[in-house]
Design a binder for these strands. Structure first.
Lengths: 157, 157
DNA sequence: GACAATTACTTTGCAAACCTATGTATAAAA
DNA sequence: TTTTATACATAGGTTTGCAAAGTAATTGTC
């Protein structure tokens, strides 16, 4: 069946496009992907503990600690020990960090959204229905997806 | 517009599902993702030079060389210097390497394909059309996607 | 209240993945 | 033949990522 192959190739293309876009964004900002991702999560979801950040990104605490060391050295984040519970450490993006995100170029999702909004109602519905179908086939519908397609900059919050 | 957000979340979920699946597969095979990816490309597209392999994966030659060092140590690939042009080195998967791929569990794409084949003709067409639309919106349609959704094992060639 | 268990984070040590720059051999061009 | 280009390997570096062990603070439990 040709269509099955088409689906695989198309999905692969879409995933690949977001990968390439992420890499480009990474070069532009001068941050590595995990660093950029950390900044994004902090920006989208606000300050949080080191552990929470690790969970968001499916990494161990130790890994996130070292990423934060580097972000801190670049003055993009700061760590503040919680007063209520002194075991906890809250991570904040600095003004400089937020500025960096805002200065990044338009994202893939901006482009996608703009084009999508131009579509006819029926086509929008068709696309959403199709994606829902695929998502459930992959068992992806149970995944708590962060509200971003890629780690792009965006003041959508 | 709610639907725009839906699209982003759904795409994110789909991408995330393939990521998680890749990681699991990586654990099962005992290979890291780049190693697994290399094996897959060799399997799907046949023996090729180190440089060609690097291009396929958007990595530098140096990076691929070190990955091949490790695969070779595990006896999963071999390098053979070309006779026509002695600068070139062809990379072959070993029998052991191919066996490893075949022994891996059913992939995400198997599940996807099976479910897809069960669908009504109209739904299949709708999904393909939707994916094509998104792919072109992302500029992904110009990407030469390897014929696989993720780096899973498959004797579909 | 004391002491064990748990929690949150950091540190350490290590493997792997990346990169840039450089080296080495071969091939092609001048 | 000398130069230039190509294909790969090597050297040296940073970053990611983990497990294991360490430190400090909190929460039982008797």
């Amino acid at each position: 069946m040709q269509k099955s192959q088409d689906v695989l190739v198309l999905l692969r293309q879409i995933i690949r496009a977001t990968e390439l876009h992420d890499k480009q964004l990474s070069r532009v900002t001068g941050l590595t992907m995990p660093q950029l991702m950390s900044m994004q999560v902090l920006h989208m979801q606000g300050p949080m503990t080191v552990g929470a950040l690790a969970n968001q990104m499916n990494l161990t605490q130790a890994t996130v600690t070292s990423i934060l060391d580097r972000l801190e050295k670049k003055q993009l984040t700061t760590r503040v020990r919680s007063q209520e519970d002194k075991r906890k450490v809250l991570v904040y993006p600095t003004g400089e960090g937020l500025a960096l995100l805002k200065s990044a170029p338009a994202t893939l999702q901006d482009r996608l959204i703009n084009a999508f909004e131009e579509m006819q109602e029926w086509e929008q519905s068709m696309i959403v229905a199709s994606l829902e179908r695929i998502s459930s086939l992959l068992g992806a519908d149970s995944i708590d997806a962060a509200p971003m397609l890629d780690v792009g900059p965006l003041d959508r919050s």
